[in-house]
Design a protein around this nucleic acid. Sequence first.
RNA 1: UCCUCCUUAGCUCAGUUGGUCAGAGCACCUGACUGUUAAUCAGGGGGUCCUUGGUUCAAGUCCAAGAGGGGGAGCCA
Length: 481
Amino acid sequence: MRKERIKIRELLAGGVPGQQVVLGGWVRTKRISKNVAFIALNDGSTLQNLQVVVNPELVDLSVLDEVYTGASLRIDGRVVASPGAGQALEVEALKVELLGKADPEHYPLQPKKHSLEFLREIAHLRFRTNTFGAITRVRHAMIFGIHKFFNDKGFLNIHSPIITGSDAEGAGEMFRVSVLDANNPPLTEEGKVDFSKDFFGKETNLTVSGQLEAELAALALGEVYTFGPTFRAENSNTSRHLAEFWMIEPEMAFYDIHDNMDLAEEMLKYLVRYALDHCMEDLLFLQSRQEDEEKQKKQEDRSMPLIEKLEFILAHPFERITYTEAIEILKESKPNKNGKFQYPIEKWGADLQSEHERYLVEKHFKKPVILTDYPKEIKAFYMKQNDDGVTVRAMDVLFPGIGEIIGGSQREERYDHLLARMQQMGIPEKEMWWYLDTRRFGTVVHSGYGLGFERLMLFITGMGNIRDVIPFPRTPQNAEF
RNA sequence: UCCUCCUUAGCUCAGUUGGUCAGAGCACCUGACUGUUAAUCAGGGGGUCCUUGGUUCAAGUCCAAGAGGGGGAGCCA
C-alpha cells in the first residue's frame, strides 16, 4: 500500500479534482444519512481530517455498519472539489475497505474533549487525538531543528554513554544498572553488595548528564553537542520533572560565559522561529486548545496567546544579570517587603526559589532572564571560579511559566583550581582521573549548558504538564506502556 | 518527600444542611430527518457513587485508614 497511498497532508496541499487516490487512516467521525455518508479520516500526516464522501450509488453503505470512531480504513476514491463549507477538497469513495474495527463499546476515544489526565491513562491511544498528534509533530520538528541548528554551525553530535560508572556527576539520585540477583546479591566480607561480581565489575548507573564526556570531545573537536536520554531517580512529583527525559548538552572549546550565553539565546530563538515556520497549523490548534482550557480562569491569570508569546520571545533580547543583581532586585521587591514570598530574601548566598525566579521573569523583566555568577556553594564543582573567590561562572536561563530551561557554565579549565574544588566538595578524584587529564594536557577555556528538551516542548506547545509533551512519561510510581 | 484538592455511567460532570439523589450531556442501540462538519430531533439500555472500616434509624453526602490522580513546594533540566 505504501507506493499507492497518498498522505492527507499531501493531498490537501496538492490534490487536483479527478485525481485517483488511495488513502489509509483512522476514522474520527462518521455521519450517515439516507443519500450520502461522510467520514472524517485522519492519518496523522496533518492535523486536518479528510472528508470522505460515500455515495450509496457507488458504494454499498453496509460496509459502514461496523465503521466507528477509531476504525482503520483503506479508501480508493477520487479527489473532488467540495461543495461543503468546511473544506476545499474531499474524496469521493469508490471502494471502502474496513481494515481494523474499533468496537465503540470498548474504544475509549470519542469525538469529544477528553481530559489530559484520562489521556495519560491511555497513552497508547492518545497519539490518535488532535492534541497529541500536534504535540508529536511539533516534537519531531524541534528534534530536527536542534540537529539542524548545530549541524549548520559545524557542531559534532556526540553519543555520550547511557550507562555510566561514575557517580560523581552530582546531578541527583541515579538509577542503578545491575544484573545481580536483587534477592540474593553476592556480598563482600564487610557484608556489602559486591559489585565487582556485577556485569561491569563495578557499580554502574544510568546517566544523569552527558556533560563530562561531552567536555572530553569538545577539548579535541571544538564544538560538540549531545542529545540523549537522561535519568534522574529523584522523587520529584511536579509538572516539570520526569525520571527519564531528553537533554541537549552543547560543549564548546574557546567559549567563555558570554559566548555561552550568546549561543544559548541564539539557539532558543532559532528553535522558536523554527516552530513558527514549520508548525503553524499545529501551533494554532494548540493555541486555541490553551485558550479553551483557560476560559474559566480570570483574565489576569490567562497566558498570552501561544503564537504571540513565541513572537514575543523573538522580539526581545534576554535580560542578562548577575545573581548579586538579582538578589538586590528581589530584596527591594514588593512581595519581599510585604512578606508575600514563602522564602523571604534576606541575604546574599540564598538559593533562588521558584517564586523568586518567577518574579524576576514574569513580573520584573517580563521576558527571559539569564542569571550568572552564582555563589559557588550552590553550584557544581566543575564551574569556573571567579577571581572574587565566592562566585562561579554559572548561567541559568529562566523562561516564563517554565523556570529554569537551561543550566550551564563556563567550565573550570585550570587544573589546580578544579582539583582544589573537587577536594573541597568531596568529589572522588581517583574516579575522575580522565576528566582531570583534560586539564593536565592542552587545557583551554570552554563552556557548555544543558537544555531540558521537554521543558522546551512545554514552552513551545503551551502545554502545562511535562507528562503531556513526551509520548511515554516515566515518573515516580509510573512506568506503564 | 511535604502541603492541598479530587475520585459518581465508557467519557465530561451535577448531586444543597445526611432523608425518592442514582442524574445530565456525549458515546452506544432504535426511529425520524438531513451535502453533513464533534450534524440535529425523539425514545431506550447502561452504575461496586475508588476500597475498607466506622458514626447514624438512615451515608454518594460525615469520620478514619488505604489506593489512584491533579495542583503547589523541594530537588533540578
